[in-house]
């Protein structure tokens, strides 16, 4: 039962992260939301691994961790650069790639 509930928790966390990602305009908060979503995904993997007694869940967690580390370092660099150039962290202000 516990792993099923863990999965429910994971999807709840994912949804909260998604809400945050879509509703916050500050880039920093969007990044935080992304972290939440990544954590939700990790939780799902861990729960799966626990359910089947397999090591693969934890390995996926490790990969997600690596991914998150790389992503955060690059994304924060971009955030810094954006704030230098635009003097704001408003995600909607950065729409120069408009089609």
């Amino acid at each position: 039962m516990l792993t099923t509930h863990a999965l429910v928790l994971a999807i709840m966390l994912f949804c909260i992260g998604l809400v945050g990602l879509l509703s916050r305009r500050n880039v920093l908060y969007m990044l935080l939301s992304l972290e939440i979503m990544l954590n939700a995904a990790s939780l799902a993997f861990i729960a799966g691994g626990a359910r089947w007694g397999q090591a693969d869940g934890e390995i996926m967690f490790l990969f997600i961790l690596t991914l998150a580390a790389a992503e955060v370092s690059v994304a924060l660099g971009i955030v810094l650069q954006l704030s230098y150039r635009f003097q704001t962290l408003d995600a909607d202000a950065f729409s120069e790639m408009k089609g």
Partner: peptide, 10 residues
Amino acid sequence: LSRTQTGHVR
């Protein structure tokens, strides 16, 4: 189609 490319990341 290009209208969908708003440039807004959200």
